[in-house]
Amino acid sequence: MGNIFDFLVVNPMTNTMLLLYGLFNNYVVALVLLTVIIRLLTLPLNLKQMVSSIKMAALQPQMKALQEKYKNDPQTLSAEMRKLGFNPLAGCLPTLIQFPILIGLYNAIMRTMAVNPFSLLELGKHVYSFLPGLSSLVPINSQFLVWDLGQPDPFFVTPILVVATTYFSTKVTMMPTTDPQMKQTNQMMSWMMPVMFGFFMLSAPVGLGIYWVVSNLIGIGQYYLMKPRLELARAQHAAPTAAPTATPAAAPAPKAPPPKSKVKPKTTVRISKPSAESGKK
């Protein structure tokens, strides 16, 4: 399993990182470029996940009503939820797909920095022999300004930047909610995550911190770039909420089908073409 993951994810990233380092002769530039490339590749998944979160947030009142109504009938509840368009996997699947990519990137960074003999040996096992010259690039020049990228930051600049950017990234990308419980969880997360990562960065190499800061900044930038689309998605999902909220309550019988025209799962899928959708409206 580890070998397959290496073969499909970590090795390509490791070798791309070395190639970029060879091209620019600067590890930070290589790291930033690879992070940008990965972030661009995962952009559709990000977008999908955000839209899905918006949809789920919009469906919250209806789902609550259904949960109350069918609290003793879980089967009907789940059937009704499905009819609403609730899909628990829709939100997490894109996130789950991104995890191996992020883990791969983390491994690729740790390998290419090769801060100890064992990580250098691991790098040696995975350098593509069909790309001549990559081996001559190791060990990478780990000096960047006053930092050694392979060492923990003695000036604590990287941990502070990681805390700050993680905080803003979490704040900015967090979906607004009216649910007080969710609000509380969100608030806790917005502090917990930065503190946790900052603490980790106290003993982690500077190079990893730079990746983190860049990744957070790109995430924030991506959010603002996607904001118009997300606002549109929010507006689109806000519209159908009124009717379906009433549907279960107004339905004469629990198993009565809701009006099909109001809840179409496809509306979420088509959110990637905002102009066409808004034009129809």
């Binding site: 580890g2 995890f99 992020l102 883990i103 983390y106 491994n107 100890n116 003999p117 064992f118 990580s119 691991e122 995550m193 946790m196 990562f197 980790f200 983190w212």
Partner: peptide, 18 residues
């Protein structure tokens, strides 16, 4: 990302360094 680290840690014991 937190999960990413958890998964990395769970993937096996930390490798020896030398």
């Amino acid at each position: 990302m937190a999960l990413a680290f958890t998964l990395t840690a769970c993937a096996g014991e930390p490798p020896p360094a030398a």
